[in-house]
């Protein structure tokens, strides 16, 4: 573990929000502290899962919240509105709760933000809600002075009910790792735009609500689906590290099996960025018992958002907490990204 000496003048840095180790450590140290798990055997803050699960009668109430800032707010394949709905729907889905009861949405707007953009974002929120079969039932609006925030910030929270909660730590030896489609699309599309890299091509965010897709996987796999997580910030690499660490297994991946679109592959090569480090907003990682893997894979592929699903690896006893990549040439450790993704020259 990395040293946890905290200097009195320590500051929160961008890397603490980038989804990697630095972020997990900050959350652990500042927010989780000695938080206890809910008394009824549910999932609370300490689990640092995608959301919380509280016992209500014979069901679980699953809830989550997330804030969204994205520069720029509109990007190929989506916008901050679609992102805010999808992100929260996906966090609930990753807990096994695919029937989304309702969402909330709070909006903080910088003075001077174009009204037309706001309406465009609202339309996008509505469309994404319709896709996910849910609705915003309450909200809040604040306006801040110029320069006090950057454009627009959204926060969404969501609740859903389920009879079975799927944690992100349920992996056991032999379990198969499934990725529901191509990776890195969102992260590279947004980065190319943010740093004005002037790349022409088909880079496009994958942002989408996944509850329909996950419902199909759960119907097919039942109890055989033992762990789920969406590889957002930090990408597939961070997500797998977290799952391997919490489940105390090693994960071996086959590089040739990991779906990557040609445009993402090309951009990654050009900018020196591993697509496995880039964010996804419409993909999920599933840990599945070996005997359920084929049926879950088939179910995922029968859904429009899961056509390119693949079994990318499996869980092993060696090196618990590590993710090992079989490149086709040899084995290597997959490292977690540190901080924000940046174009590289070397």
């Amino acid at each position: 573990m990395s040293a946890s000496r905290i200097a009195p003048d320590a500051k929160v840095m961008l890397k603490h929000g980038a989804g990697g180790r630095a972020m997990r450590e900050l959350i652990q140290q500042v927010f989780v502290g000695d938080a206890k798990a809910p008394a009824d055997g549910g999932i609370g803050l300490a689990a640092m899962d995608d959301g919380a699960a509280l016992r209500v009668g014979d069901e679980w109430l699953v809830m989550t919240t997330d804030s969204y800032v994205v520069k720029p707010p509109f990007f190929p394949g989506g916008d901050i509105g679609r992102l805010a709905v999808s992100g929260t729907v996906n966090d609930l889905s990753m807990m096994g709760a695919t029937e989304i009861a309702a969402l909330t949405c709070a909006v903080i707007i910088e003075e001077g933000f174009p009204r037309a953009d706001l309406e465009r974002i609202k339309a996008s929120i509505s469309a994404a809600c319709a896709e996910a079969g849910t609705a915003i039932v309450t909200g809040d609006t604040k306006v801040m002075g110029r320069g006090e925030i950057d454009g627009i910030v959204l926060n969404t929270a969501g609740v859903a009910f389920t009879r079975r909660v799927v944690p992100d730590c349920g992996l056991a030896l032999g379990d198969q790792i499934i990725v529901t489609g191509t990776i890195g699309d969102h992260g590279l599309a947004v980065m190319a735009l943010r740093h004005s890299l002037e790349l022409e091509g088909e880079l496009c965010s994958d942002v989408a609500p996944l509850n329909g897709l996950i419902r199909r996987a759960l119907e097919a796999g039942g109890e055989g689906v033992v762990a789920m997580k969406d590889p957002t910030r930090g990408g597939l690499a961070s997500t797998l590290h977290e799952m391997a660490g919490k489940s105390r297994v090693g994960i071996v991946l086959k590089a040739s099996r990991i779906p990557v679109s040609p445009s993402v592959q090309a951009t990654g090569e050009l900018l020196g960025i591993d697509p496995m480090h880039a964010a996804n907003e419409g993909k999920a990682v599933l840990g599945v018992r070996p005997d359920a893997a084929a049926s879950v894979l088939a179910a995922l592929r029968s859904h429009p958002l899961g056509r390119q699903a693949e079994i990318v690896g499996s869980c092993v006893a060696q090196r618990p907490g590590f993710v090992i990549l079989d490149t086709g040439f040899g084995l290597r450790l997959l490292v977690e990204p540190e901080g924000e993704l940046l174009p590289r020259i070397c």
Binding site: D274, L325, D326, T327, G328, F329, G330, L331, R332
Partner: peptide, 8 residues
Amino acid sequence: ARFGLRAI
């Protein structure tokens, strides 16, 4: 590193 060549 990327291609895991050290392993071979």
